[in-house]
Structures are given as C-alpha cells and as structure tokens.
Design a protein around this nucleic acid. Structure first.
Length: 996
DNA sequence: TGCAGCACCTAG
DNA sequence: TCAGCTAGGTGCTGCA
C-alpha cells in the first residue's frame, strides 16, 4: 500500500446529498441485472432487476459510478386489426410491450410472432418493431440496444456531462460498493440532468490513461507460452499524473525518472502490478497489441502460477478480467486474431487497431513511431531478451529502459494523433458510447442517430430480416483522355455529393413510396419524384425525410464548429472543434453507406441506388453543361473539354494558358452548374492542376494550385505507385522523384537520367535491401487462397523456421525476391529480408527491373516522351548491363563447391593450395595486402558510423546495440556491413604473417 | 501466349 | 458472425 498510495486519485470531498449536485463526464455505460436493489429504488420484479451503470470522471478528476434503476426493456408490435387511428407512417397502431429483464425480450417476441388469441381478439401474428434481437444467440446485442434505449430516452449522448440533482441520489456506503470507483451512487433512471455537449459542456474531464508493456523470457525459436515462459518485466506509463514505473523480476539498476520495483518472486510481481493498476484507477488502459498479447499473457500466466487475485484489473469487484472469444474466433477475418481480453469498466484501447485506420506500409510500433513522431524505437529479438534477463542488474536495466519506451510510445501517439479528443467528439456527435467506437463498426453510429430521430417524430424502426444478393450500380468514372497536359486543368467538385443528393431529393426510408403503394394513388404528380433508378419518393412538402433531417443537423453543426474554430484562440479548444467538424463530416458520409449495407440493420437499396443514379446523371450533365457553354461559338477563346471525372468531380481543360484564367473560368462554371441543381447540391471550384499527367482511371498526378499564387501547394498523386503500399520503396521513391523532375522542374532529360542511374544501381547491386522490401497483407489463411502468392508462401516457410517471429493473419509480410531457377514463379523466390542478409542470398535484380520498375516508369514517361522513345531510352543501353556478382554462399550445395576453389586475391587465378596470392602476384603481395587492409578499414568505419547511429536511436552511446527492427533501413545496412566485414577479415587472414 | 480470375489496394 | 458502399487498375497464377 505504501508503494502505491501516492498515486491514488485525490480523495472525494465531503458531500451532502441533500445540497450538493454531482457533476461528471460520462465515459461508458453498461447493463447488468441484480437480484436486489438498494432501499428507495424499484425492487426486482420476478427475481432480477435491470440496472444501467454509468462510469464517469468529475472535473476534479474523481472517479464515479452511477447505477440507474427502474429502466425496463420494451419493444413494440404492430397492433391487430380493429385499432382505428395510428401513426403517420404505418397507418396502424402499435402496442408497447414492456418486460422485466432483457432476457425476456427474445421469448416474448417469439411468442407474439408465432401468434396467439386473446379473449377479445382472434388469433394474430404480431410483427416486432425495435426489438433488435435479430441475432438471438447474441445476448449482448440486445443489451447494447437496451443501453441505446436508455440513452435516447434520457438524452444521454456519448461522453456528455451528467448532473445528479441534490436530494435525488443516494450515496453508497463503503461496504455496499461493487466497484473500486471513488464514489458510487444510486439514481432513478429519469431523475437526473443530461447536458448536451454545447458551450461550457464541451469541456473534457481529466482522464487517466495507463499504457503498459510486458517482456517474457522466451526460449529460442519458440513463441513464449504462458504455461512455461515467465513474465520478467512489466512497464507502465500513466498520464496524468505522469508516472513511469517498471516491475522487474530480479534486481534492476535505477532509472532516472522512473520508479523501479524489483521482485524475487514472479507471483509477487504480478500481484504488485494489479495493486498498482487498481491504485492508479485509470479510465483507459492502452498499449500496443495488449489485447492480443500482453493482457491474455498476463492473465494466463497468473492463472498458471495461481495468483488468485491477479485478474481483477477492472473496476468491478469480484469480476474477473476474462479472455474472450475462443468459441467464435479463428474463422473469419475479423474475429480471428486469437483470444482477446475483456476489461470491465475500463476502456481497453488496443492501440494498433486504431493505427490501422491510418494507411501505412507497416504497423509495427517502430514504424508507426517513426512515421508520426519521427523517432525509431529498438526492436529486440526475444532470444536477446532472455540473455539480458540472465545477466546483471545493469543488463536488466537495459531491458527495462527498452520496455518503458514501448509503454510510453502509445501514450505519445495517442496525444499526437489526438485520438481521445477525436473519439470523444465522435461519440458526442453520433450519440454512441465511446467504447462502441473502438469495438464496433460504422453503422452503429447511424443507427444511434436514426433512433433518436425516430423517437422525436414518433416513428418506430422496423426489424428487417437480413438478406443479401442484390447489387446496385455505383458511380460513374468518366473515360479519361489520357496524356500529359502542359496547361492548367481546373477541377470542379460536388461537395458532399451523396449527402446533398439525399437532402435535395428528400430520400429516406420514410419518404420511399413502395411499389403498389396506396399512398401514391392519392398523391398529385407534383407531390413525388421518380428517381433516375426508377424509384418513387414523396417530396418534402408532403413529408420531410428523417435522413435529410439528420444530415441537415449534422451539416449545420459542422458549419457551426467551423465558425467557432475561426474565432477560438485556445489551441486545445480549437483542436476539439476540429475533431468535431471532422467527426461530423465522416458521419454525414456514412449515412449513404448505411443504406447500402445489405448485411446491416436497415438496408434500403432504393435509397442507395437512387443516390448513385442521381450522381451519375449529375456528372453527365455537368460535363455536358461545361462543354456546351464554354465554346468558341459562345465567345470564349477555346472549346472547353472535360478530360476526366470520378463520382463527384470533373477535370476541365478550358484551353487557357494560366492558372489564374483557368481558376476564374472554373469558379464561373461551378456557379453556373450549381444553379441547375436543386439545393443544397453545389458544385465548387476546388483546384487547378498544372501541369497534369493523366495516366488512367483513378491514376493521375499534377501540381496542385488552390489559389492563383505563383507557386503550387503540393504535388498531388492519386493511385500511382507513390501512394500504394504493395510495391518496393525503390519503386515508390523512383517514381516520385521522376514525377518531381517532370512536373516541378519540367526536366524530362533529368528524370530519364535519374531513372537510368537507379536502374544501373539496381542491376549492379548498389541498392540497399531496405529499398527492395515489398510488403503485403496476409488477409486469410493459407487454405483460403485459391492461387499461390509470394507473401503467403513466405509466411508459411517462415513458420517452419521460427514460429515465434513468423507473420500472423492480418500482419503485413515484408519480403524480397531472390535469384532462383530461370522462369521460376515469384512465389518460390520470395524471401525474408533478414534471412537474405544472414545467408548472403542474391537479390533477383532483373526481376525488380522487369516487375517493379519498368511498367510504372513507362506509364509515366510514355505520355511525355512517346511510347517508342520511352521504351528505348529507359530500358535499353549501357545502364541495363547486369553485373554478375559472385556470392560467397549461394545455396547449400553451391556454397560447398565455391569453398573448394581458392583463388588468388590479386588476379583471381585458381590457387593450387591455401594462401593469399599466386606465384605471379607474389612480388606485389604487400601492395595487394595494403589494398585489402584499406577495404577493411573503410568497412570498419562504415560499421562504426551505423553503430553510433543505432546507439543514438536507443538513447545511449555506451551500450551495445540490440535492435533488430525490420522496419529500419539502418538495421539492414548495419547487418550487411557486418557480414561484409567478416568476409573481409577472413580474406585478410589468408595472408598469414609473411605479408607484413 | 493469351486470357480469366484472384488478390491487393486505392479513388471517391 | 454481429459487418458502410461500388468502380477500377495492376500484377500474378493457372490453364487452355
């Protein structure tokens, strides 16, 4: 206790429940049932009572848990015939069915749907509305809905502020507490205030985040197993207050700025860590890959060692942190990543899952840190970890520093990317609890908004049986007029095309006129529209759609947020607002996707199909308008031509020479076209590309001008190798540099020269291996792949070598292509880059030229140089001469053969016996020796430079480098030089003492 | 050698 | 099993 007490939250001040309100920011909600309730709260009916518990933090940083009582689950069924008046939509009455606990919803619904008779009415099959038990085996989806129901009925949105009114809440005494929160209270479900996140209520409470990382002492070549391999270190970093701690097995030297706790016994260490977590009482637990590795490992290990009190990492007393998902996992892409640990009452933020939203070539902690923080981290192989552990207090300290860094980086990344702010804003905007954003998909957000809206206007959401088969047509991509345009190209975009179509034409579930609809017969021709896909919707003067209303409120909130951002001076508040406007934009765009999601809760292809059909028509019309208006005939200097367009944009060549002219015409055209469409559809001038290289559909590059200034804003590349992650960095970099030379410097010769130089470097083996690494995601298991693939086959081979470090499902697999038999398939020639270095395998440079460089290069050069010239200039000539490299070890058998033939170091003549030089070279042996010595020292110098660079990265210049990061180019260079050094030393050894 | 179809990733 | 959508380019495998 003395160890951990200093990090407890500040004590809760004295509270008078009759006078003091309790105000807190709510972070999560959960549903549970209890067989008893406190005095003054509704008693359980029929055994158990449903309770909603809400966790939150006050502005002063106190943790609080609130139990809401008396909120019963309910749903609706369509009433039997005989009821006269009804709700607008269904023209029928509904019966509200309330049950005692959620478990009864499913049975009740089934009973009602099967049908039965009552005394007053004949037998009737009732169809359920808003019952949300489409998956009856999954109880949790029902509880989820129960939480939504509570939130919509009480006006609670994700992460908003809650105020408990004096006299309306009861504080629990210590012995009645069920959790480790500082304060627990009981409230009636409708006797509190929920503040919408506006004005002052946009603030954010001080949230405590704990991030941790563990190290295990693994055995050589095997992935650590909790039943055997001990946990040796646990590092954790908390914010705020800022606390760095490390729990170590065996002694560990002190680390400045961190608390070191060393233990003789692993069980004690595990227990101390749990105690620490409970004392700190974090709101969010984070870490890299913790839910797939660290947490399950800790729990299984504690289980194995019988540390009974370990798994209580959550806030609920007597509630074990469980490992979830053995039953259903390992089948699909989503649920297949082994078992996951489920934390109760703390948000588990699996860090790498958040990072997957960013498109990166690699998702290792190292790669991500480098990308966002500009900082590498060490990657230590598990065999070295055991070595360091078995060393001294100093080597264990070395490990601890490394472990601490891994715990700290997720916190820094959370900050840097503003994940917490952005997710809270998303929760507030869409109304869903924070945790749903982390664990569920996009559609839950739309459902949440729809439920709130339907309640407002007294409508109910039907239960749609899931079915999929039907398809609907998407957007148009205008056939590009490919080529290199050395003139300004104006780009006009429909802003938020799909949302604005839905608004303009009042497209919604509630406005759709079904086939054979009786309503249509009673409507005049001006009361409804026929969409280009042949569906009918009533106009807004008859009935305003819900989706358009949702979109309107999202868009006006976004306009509002943007306006507030402009006047806000506090950078933190500004970033909150920026997060909000982004969240609003994303929510807007996901509404259309939701209507088209056939496996979702409420698919409506009439809506999504109409939206895309309108879009297609509008793009065609826009093209036609622009091309008929801007003509010589109409007094313009040139005939305008739409050279390309995709979904919501058109690229126009007005024929003018300057960016400014193009811009002026673009703005004019945008306004002209906007007028022809129903509000709020709006075509906007976006940017001018000059020059512009149009390679194909969805593939182009150009210099981006957003204003008529002299200089471009950036070079914009779409779909080209530079932005794709499935090629080697060599390709991406070369294409990027060539494009810069072509577009910015306007120097085709320079671009060609550079390409030739890189090709020559490649063929002469002068390219570093890190530039040649291709990565591809392992999207399914080997059996599921129809054809053989390079990365899949390699992953399989690596598994056989070392199951511990082999890539797993969902990982991106790095590989290079090595030499093999002539005409051998690429999937047989893929290899792990580290394996290539260690075994001195030859890279198949010709493969890289033929399959990685030539096509992309031709594609960008052909429009500039012409097909024939591009071919001949780039791919023929001296620079394509291959330098055959004699390798030390090729593959098994060959290597033995190579060893036998010792050659003279001076003239490469075969030597009859061991030694350095042949008879003819003996006279200049000393000279040859000096040359080889020089080579060695140059390699040594290179090695020491790289070594120092790695030391700098690890933050210490007097410790050995232990990093083996596969994402780091330095690592590969260091490894290569080291191998070269060794072979050079062995060359020198052959001279014997005579030479000097 | 040409081509269908799979796999991956991207545009919007 | 608990899930936004479609269009489309490019490279590779596997087969005729």
């Amino acid at each position: 206790e003395s160890v951990v007490s200093e990090w407890r939250r500040p004590p809760f001040p004295d509270l008078d429940p009759e006078k003091d309100p309790i105000i807190f920011q709510q972070l999560d909600l959960e549903h549970y049932t209890d067989d008893k309730t406190p005095d003054g709260m509704p008693a359980p009916q029929g055994g158990t009572a449903p309770v909603i518990r809400m966790f939150g933090v006050t502005a002063e940083g106190h943790s609080i848990l609130c139990h809401f009582h008396g909120f019963l689950p309910y749903f609706y069924v369509k009433a039997m015939a005989g009821f006269k008046v009804g709700l607008a939509l269904m023209c029928s009455k509904f019966l509200k069915i309330t049950v005692a606990v959620p478990r009864l919803v499913a049975t009740t619904k089934r009973m009602l749907e099967t049908g039965f008779r009552t005394q007053t009415y004949p037998e009737h099959c009732y169809s359920a509305f808003e019952s949300f038990i489409d998956f009856e085996i999954r109880y949790s989806s029902l509880l989820l809905f129960q939480i939504f129901r509570f939130m919509t009925d009480t006006g609670v949105t994700g992460c908003n502020w809650i105020e408990l009114v004096p006299g309306k809440y009861q504080v629990r005494a210590g012995c009645e507490m069920t959790t480790s929160a500082q304060l627990e209270v009981d409230v009636l479900w409708n006797e509190f205030t929920s503040h919408p996140p506006d004005g002052d209520w946009q603030k954010i409470a001080p949230i405590r985040i704990l991030s941790f990382d563990i190290e295990c002492a693994g055995r050589k070549g095997v992935f650590p197993v909790p039943n055997i391999d001990p946990v040796i270190q646990i590092a954790s970093v908390v914010k705020k207050p800022f606390i760095k701690t490390i729990f170590t097995l065996n002694s560990c030297s002190t680390i400045v700025g961190s608390k070191v706790f060393s233990f003789r016994d692993e069980k004690e260490m595990l227990q101390a860590f749990t105690d620490f977590v409970c004392a700190v009482d974090p709101d969010i637990i984070s870490g890299y890959n913790i839910q797939n590795f660290d947490l399950p490992y800790l729990i299984n290990r504690a289980n194995h060692l019988k540390v009974a009190k370990f798994p209580y990492l959550g806030r609920i007393k007597d509630c074990v942190t469980k490992i979830e998902g053995d039953e259903y996992s390992n089948r699909s892409k989503m649920g297949s990543r082994e078992s996951e640990a489920k934390l109760t009452w703390r948000e588990g933020v699996q860090f790498d899952a958040l990072l997957r939203e960013q498109k990166l070539r690699s998702y290792t902690l190292n790669a991500v840190s480098f990308h966002f923080l500009g900082e590498q981290k060490e990657d230590v192989h598990h065999s070295i970890i055991t070595e360091l552990q078995n060393g001294s207090a100093q080597t264990r300290r070395r490990l601890a520093v490394y472990c601490l860094k891994d715990a700290f980086l997720p916190i820094r990344l959370l900050d840097k990317l503003m994940f917490i702010i952005n997710y809270m804003e998303m929760a507030r905007v869409t109304g869903v609890p924070l945790s749903y954003l982390l664990t569920r998909g996009q559609s839950i957000k739309v459902i949440s908004q729809l439920l709130r809206k339907t309640k407002e206007v007294d409508l109910l959401m039907p239960v749609i049986p899931t079915s999929n088969n039907d398809e609907f047509t998407g957007a148009t991509v205008i056939e590009p007029i490919k080529g290199y345009y050395n003139q300004p190209i104006a780009t006009l975009d429909f802003s938020s095309l799909y949302p604005s179509i839905m608004q303009a034409h009042n497209l919604c579930y509630t406005t759709l006129l079904m086939k054979n609809s009786k309503e249509k017969e009673n409507l005049g021709p001006d009361d409804f529209i026929k969409t280009p896909s042949g569906d009918f919707f009533v106009k807004s003067h008859i009935r305003m759609g819900l989706l358009p209303e949702i979109l309107e409120s999202l868009l006006s909130a976004r306009r509002n947020a943007k306006a507030m951002m402009k006047v806000e001076t506090d950078p933190f508040k500004r970033s909150v607002l920026d997060g909000r406007q982004l969240a609003l934009k994303i929510s807007c765009n996901s509404v259309y996707g939701f209507t088209g999601a056939q496996v979702g809760k409420l698919p409506c292809l009439e809506i999504s199909g109409s939206v895309t059909a309108f879009g297609r028509m509008m793009i065609d019309q826009t093209k036609r308008h622009v091309e008929t208006q801007y003509t010589v005939e109409n007094g313009y200097a040139h005939n305008a031509k739409v050279i390309y367009g995709d979904t919501d944009s058109v690229m126009v060549k007005f024929g003018v020479a300057t960016v400014a002219e193009s811009m002026a015409l673009g703005k004019e055209a945008a306004d002209l076209v906007s007028e022809k469409f129903v509000k709020p559809i709006k075509l906007e001038f976006e940017k001018v590309y000059y020059p512009y290289l149009l390679i194909n559909k969805k593939r182009y590059a150009g210099l981006y001008f957003s204003s008529s200034s002299e200089v471009h804003d950036k070079m914009d590349c779409k779909g080209i190798e530079t932005v794709r992650r499935d090629n080697a960095p060599l390709t991406a970099n070369l294409i990027s540099t060539c494009l810069q030379k072509l577009l910015i410097n306007r120097d085709p010769e320079g671009a060609v020269d550079h390409a030739k130089e890189v090709i020559s470097d490649l063929l002469c083996n002068r390219i570093d291996i890190s530039q040649l690494i291709i990565t591809k995601e392992l999207t399914k298991t080997k059996e599921e792949y129809a054809a053989k693939q390079a990365h899949v086959e390699l992953a399989e081979r690596m598994k056989k070598r070392d199951a511990g470090s082999a890539p797993q499902l969902g990982d991106r697999v790095p590989f290079v292509i090595v030499c093999g038999a002539k005409g051998q398939a690429a999937y047989l020639k893929s290899e792990d880059p580290i394996y290539v270095l260690e075994n001195n395998l030859q890279i198949d440079t010709e493969h890289y030229l033929k399959h990685q460089l030539s096509q992309p290069l031709l594609r960008i050069f052909e429009p500039v140089l012409g097909e024939a010239k591009a071919q001949s200039v780039l791919l023929k000539g001296d620079h394509t001469r291959v330098k055959k490299v004699v390798s030390g070890k090729v593959m098994g058998g060959l290597m033995a053969f190579a060893k036998k033939r010792v050659t003279c170091i001076g003239c490469k003549a075969v030597l009859p016996k061991d030694g350095a030089v042949c008879v003819h070279c003996e006279t200049r042996e000393s000279q040859i020796y000096q040359k080889e010595i020089a080579k060695l020292s140059s390699l040594e110098e290179k090695f020491s430079r790289l070594w120092t660079q790695c030391q700098r990265c690890q933050g210490s210049l007097h410790e050995e480098v232990i990093c083996t990061s596969r994402d780091c180019p330095i690592f590969y260079m260091r490894k290569k030089v080291r191998i070269d050094l060794e072979s050079q030393s062995s060359v020198l050894r052959r001279f014997g003492s005579a030479a000097w």
